[in-house]
Simulated scan of single mutants.
Amino acid sequence: MTRSQIEEDPEDVVARYLMSGGSEDKHFNRLGMRSYGFAPLRLPADLDFTALFHGVDERVPVDALEFGARVLDRFLDQI
């Protein structure tokens, strides 16, 4: 995951984070499958991303999604 993100943007800093909310991971865990969250978004520094959670205009910039899609595509090619 880290390699696919750094290859897309060598100046990126990859950091672990905790995010509240639900996930389907618990169902996979019961089957003995380990899973990881991976949400590669490159957000502008001036975007108050957490203030947008579950708001009427919850959104991310299109270029952030395009970056994430490229990183995920690169990651899937590598595994």
Rank of each mutant, 00 (worst) to 15 (best):
E66C: 03
R34Y: 06
R3K: 14
V60D: 05
D57A: 06
P40L: 08
V60I: 12
V13E: 12
L47C: 00
F67V: 02
R59F: 07
A51H: 04
R3V: 08
V14Q: 12
L31C: 07
E7I: 08
H27K: 07
R34L: 11
F28I: 02
R59I: 00
K26L: 13
F38M: 03
A15W: 10
V62E: 05
V62N: 01
Q78T: 10
G22P: 09
V13L: 14
R70A: 14
L72Y: 13
R30S: 02
F75K: 02
A69E: 09
G21Y: 06
D48H: 11
T2C: 04
P40T: 01
P40G: 02
R34C: 03
L47I: 00
Y17P: 01
A69M: 12
S35L: 07
E24G: 02
Y17I: 07
E11V: 05
V60C: 05
S4D: 05
N29I: 05
D57V: 04
A15G: 12
Y17H: 13
D77H: 11
L43K: 02
A15Y: 15
S20V: 14
V71T: 04
D25T: 10
L31T: 00
D12F: 14
G37K: 06
A45H: 10
R42G: 04
A45Y: 14
V71H: 03
G68E: 13
R59A: 00
M33L: 15
L43E: 03
V62G: 01
L65R: 06
G55H: 05
G32T: 02
S35K: 04
E8V: 12
D77R: 12
R34K: 04
S20D: 13
G32D: 02
R3P: 03
F49H: 08
D9T: 08
L43D: 05
G68Y: 08
E8N: 08
L76D: 07
E24V: 06
K26A: 12
L47T: 00
L43N: 02
A39D: 08
D12E: 14
V14Y: 15
E7T: 06
L41W: 14
R70M: 11
R70S: 09
D12C: 13
D77P: 04
G22D: 11
L65P: 03
L65W: 13
D73R: 09
E8G: 03
P40Y: 11
V62M: 10
S23Q: 03
F38Y: 15
D25Q: 10
E66S: 05
E8D: 12
H54I: 02
V60G: 00
D77I: 09
S23W: 09
A64L: 08
P44I: 03
R74L: 11
T50L: 15
V56W: 11
F38C: 03
R3I: 07
A64F: 11
M33S: 02
D9W: 14
M1R: 07
G21N: 10
R30N: 01
Y17K: 15
D25Y: 13
R59M: 07
P40A: 11
L41I: 07
A64R: 04
F75R: 05
L31H: 09
R59G: 00
A39M: 14
L65H: 11
D12L: 15
N29H: 13
R16W: 15
